[in-house]
């Protein structure tokens, strides 16, 4: 079984549109959306949810105002500046401590050291994950509740579930829509994968972000290659990306033109290759063939 992850470093390079087209073309695969805090793939693939599951990722920690003696221990030991001195009074003290849920990382250290046992810390539900059926095969996806942590944990969970599903159904390919950036959800999407396709665009920002995300795949020792989307926006930059690839021993597996059909397809809830048979679709198909060849 092979795991292909499509990432981009920079957001908005057209990664999800390309994954949706791959989903249309590829046979016998499981689809995965690891961009758990801004998942979009479902908008094109219109999954029918077969199972809905809760994701328990972190801890919800709060001060029980009735027990707090305002000793200040929690404030002293919290490394995340999450303790505020503005909780309600309780007859013992006029003001108690309160935990700001947005700043709290859920480490639970304050709860452990509170002499009055006034802090409660329990596992919290941070999102949901789904196993679904789409017109192009099974899909595993998730939704991290907004303003939540642990996107990396959820991305890892979704990938593991996809592997199980692929084994059960004897499917030999997993196509993953990864997250933007180079931090925790991206690392969780790519570690241990077989192949990473980096979708970039011919802009200085695109190239800059490509360099960082390429370095990340190298850091983790994962085989990766590049695709330049909207390549005709700036041919010079496209060539600069080719040169970067060459200098770093990476391959550019495809160039895809800028075409308003890509947005139109999205509006219609279709993948680009479903929506049009024009040049842009042919370029995506050629890219797919190259990816399959490189992955083998």
């Amino acid at each position: 079984m092979k795991e292909l992850v499509v990432i981009s470093g920079k957001g908005g390079t057209g990664k999800t549109s390309i994954v949706a087209s791959f989903a249309t073309i590829a046979q016998k695969k499981v689809l995965v959306d690891c961009d758990v805090d801004a998942a979009d793939l479902h908008l094109v693939l219109a999954p029918r949810i077969l199972s809905r599951n809760v994701f328990i990722g972190g801890r919800e920690t709060r001060v029980l105002p009735g027990h707090c003696t305002a000793c200040g221990k929690c404030e002293e030991i919290c490394r995340f500046d999450a303790i505020r001195f503005d909780g309600p009074g309780n007859g013992i003290v006029p003001k108690t401590f309160r935990i700001d849920p947005l700043a709290c990382e859920g480490c639970g250290v304050c709860a452990h050291f509170c002499a009055e046992n006034a802090i409660e810390s329990k596992p919290s539900q941070n999102g949901e994950w789904f196993v679904s059926e789409t017109r192009h095969g099974p899909m595993v996806h998730a939704r991290l509740y907004s303003a939540e942590e642990n996107s990396g944990k959820l991305a890892t969970l979704v990938r593991n579930e996809a592997k199980k599903l692929a084994e059960e159904k004897s499917l030999d390919l997993i196509i993953i829509d990864g997250a933007p950036g180079i931090g925790c959800p991206v690392i969780a999407s790519v570690t241990g994968a077989d192949f990473v396709l980096i979708v970039t665009e011919p802009t200085l920002s695109g190239k800059h972000d490509l360099e960082r995300v390429f370095e990340l795949t190298k850091y983790f020792g994962i085989k990766s290659a590049i695709c330049v989307n909207k390549f005709d926006l700036n041919i010079e930059m496209t060539e600069a990306i080719d040169a970067f690839a060459k200098d770093n021993g990476a391959k550019v597996l495809g160039r895809i033109r800028y075409d308003s059909a890509v947005t139109k397809a999205q509006v219609m809830g279709a993948s680009v290759v479903e929506y049009t048979s024009g040049a842009v679709a042919n370029e995506i198909k050629a890219l797919w063939r190259n990816v399959v060849y490189e992955m083998a």
């Binding site: 957001g11 801004a38 947005l102 933007p180 950036g181 959800p185």
Partner: peptide
């Protein structure tokens, strides 16, 4: 801000 709606974005807009 960074894209997304999880910790680093929240930290930025807080």
């Amino acid at each position: 801000a960074p894209p997304g709606t999880s910790c680093p974005a929240v930290e930025t807009i807080m």
